[in-house]
Amino acid sequence: MNELRGKRGILAVIALLIIGIGFLSSLFELAGNVRPGVSQIYNSLAHLVAPNNIATWVYDWRGYDTLLETAVIYVGAVVSAMVIGRGVVQMKSCPQEPPAQSKPLEFHIETLTVILKYLGLPAAILLFSYGIMVVTASSTSGGGGFQCGVIMTAAYLLAAIFYGKNNPIRFGKRFIIGIGAAGLGGYTLLGLPGFLTTGFWQYNIGADVWGIAPSIMRFIFGEPFRLSLVLKEGVFFSSPGIIPLINVAEAFNVIGAIGLIYFAFIYGWQEE
């Protein structure tokens, strides 16, 4: 923070004040004057896709945005691992300073109580199954791939704290990289069925709101997740289509990404 002392610091504070006042005043001005715009149209169509409106927004109406959001997490993890030495490159022809290699953290696990020692593993298993439950509930209730990934990697971190190097969850380098690649690659490729049959990338052929998908594709991607909604207004049938599959891919990606960060920062990254 030394760089922010003196004139620079004063300038930074003034700039932040101007930005803050401008932002807050515009929020006050906006209050009560927000135009609903496209959200009205989205909400009026929501009952045609997943029962969980948020899942429909995130993975269908704005599903392609979410792909890049997912890629942000992936890139963030790859870059973080690069900072501590994974995939650093040098010119063959021109020797430079050696790249940084990170050492693993030092563990002191003697102080673990008996209860933690014996309940750590079951807790990790239960967290795993909780994460899986969350991802399978993506289209019907609060849940989804991001949350699943975070819960699963939390289990990994918990086990690393309890057991140190002797981690019962042995996410290896290859598994973590592979699952991340399968996740982001899977999410990207889930755009392909819609692209090949209707011409629109990532069209939700299972839900098929606009009736442009071939019936066989609608059956393959829609039927496994079709639900009947028993409401006061009557019984509705709707299918989230590819949303549950996207969520599984999303979960894989987040596990791969956050798992890579945890792995690299806890156990260090050494090239074998």
Partner: peptide
């Protein structure tokens, strides 16, 4: 022109 571990780069 680069060394071996060039995948992430």
């Amino acid at each position: 022109g680069l060394t071996k571990h060039q995948g992430p780069y």
